[in-house]
C-alpha cells in the first residue's frame, strides 16, 4: 500500500478501540481494591488505598488455592492427553485415509462438531456418576472427548503435509510403526502440538458448563465454577466478588503476558489449516 509510511489515523483508532477491551479489566481491578464504603462514590475512581484485604478474604472464603490447583490438574491432564491421544489418532487416520474404515472413522469423529452439547448433557450427568467419574479425572477425559473432533482435524491437516518418504526410510531401517511415530512424526508435529495444547488449555481452564455438569464434590470445583458457586456469598459484597474474579483470571493473564507471542502464533497456525 503506502510503502513504509506509518498510518497514524488507523493507529489512533485502534488505540481508542483498546479502551473498550481494557475498560472492564480496569473496572475489575479498581473495584477489587475498594472497600464497600467507597462504592457509594464514583465507581470508576481509583481506590483510596491499595489494600490487599479483599484478596486475602477472597482466597480464604473461596478456598482459592484448592480451586486453582483443581483447574491446573484438569488443564494439564487434558492438554497432555489431547497431545498424546489426538496426534496418534490423526496420524493413523491421515496415513490410512484411503481405507474405508479410517475414512469412516475420520468422518465419525469430525461429525461430532455438529452434535450440540445439550443432547449429551443430561445422560452424561448420570453416566459419569455411575462410573465414578464425577471428578477431576472424569472431567479431563470428557474435555478431550469434546475436543477430539477439532484437534484431530487440525492434526490430520498437518500430517498430510509431512512427506511419507521419511517414514518409508525409517521402515527400511527396520523401525516399527510405533518407533517411527514417536521418533520421527511426533517431533515433526511440534508446531501443531503447540496449537492443540494452547486451544485445549484455554478451553479446559475457562470451561464452565462441563465442570458444572460433571463435578459433584465442591472441593473439586474449578476456578470458574467456584465463582458461580459463590454468587450467593458475593451478593452483598461486590468488592470481595471482584477480588475473587480477578484472582481467577489472573493466572491466565500472567501466562499470557509472558507467552502472548507464542499463544497468538499457535492459534493463528491452527486457523490457517
Amino acid at each position: 500500500m503506502s510503502g513504509l509510511k506509518i498510518n497514524w489515523k488507523i493507529t489512533t483508532l485502534l488505540i481508542l478501540g483498546t479502551l473498550f477491551i481494557l475498560f472492564p479489566l480496569y473496572l475489575t481491578i479498581v473495584i477489587a481494591f475498594k472497600t464497600p464504603e467507597e462504592m457509594g462514590g464514583n465507581l470508576l475512581a481509583l481506590p483510596e488505598s491499595w489494600s490487599f484485604d479483599n484478596f486475602l478474604t477472597a482466597i480464604e472464603v473461596t478456598n482459592f488455592y484448592q480451586s486453582f490447583f483443581n483447574s491446573l490438574i484438569v488443564t494439564v491432564a487434558s492438554v497432555v492427553m489431547a497431545i498424546l491421544i489426538h496426534s496418534l489418532v490423526a496420524y493413523a487416520i491421515a496415513r490410512n485415509i484411503h481405507k474405508k474404515f479410517y475414512k469412516f472413522l475420520y468422518i465419525y469423529f469430525i461429525s461430532a462438531m455438529f452434535v450440540p452439547f445439550p443432547i449429551i448433557m443430561l445422560p452424561i450427568v448420570k453416566q459419569t456418576s455411575f462410573l465414578g467419574m464425577d471428578n477431576l479425572l472424569g472431567l479431563a477425559f470428557l474435555t478431550i472427548v469434546m475436543h477430539l473432533a477439532l484437534n484431530v482435524f487440525i492434526y490430520v491437516g498437518y500430517v498430510k503435509t509431512i512427506p511419507i518418504a521419511l517414514e518409508e526410510a525409517a521402515t527400511i531401517d527396520g523401525a516399527s510403526t510405533w518407533t517411527t511415530f514417536w521418533k520421527i512424526i511426533f517431533p515433526l508435529m511440534t508446531p501443531m502440538h503447540a496449537t492443540v495444547g494452547i486451544l485445549t488449555a484455554l478451553a479446559a481452564w475457562n470451561d464452565f458448563m462441563l465442570p458444572l455438569i460433571v463435578l459433584s464434590d465442591e472441593s473439586q470445583y474449578t476456578l470458574p465454577l467456584v465463582q458461580y458457586a459463590f454468587q450467593g456469598q458475593f451478593s452483598t459484597n461486590y468488592n470481595l466478588a471482584f477480588a475473587s474474579y480477578l484472582l481467577a483470571i489472573l493466572p491466565m493473564i500472567i501466562v499470557y503476558i509472558f507467552a502472548q507471542k507464542w499463544i497468538i502464533g499457535g492459534v493463528m497456525r491452527g486457523s490457517v489449516k
Binding site: I73, V76, A77, I83, L84, L137
Partner: peptide, 12 residues
Amino acid sequence: TTIILLSASLLI
C-alpha cells in the same frame, strides 16, 4: 508426559 499424567492422577 507419563510422569505428569501419573502424578496428576495421584494428586486427584
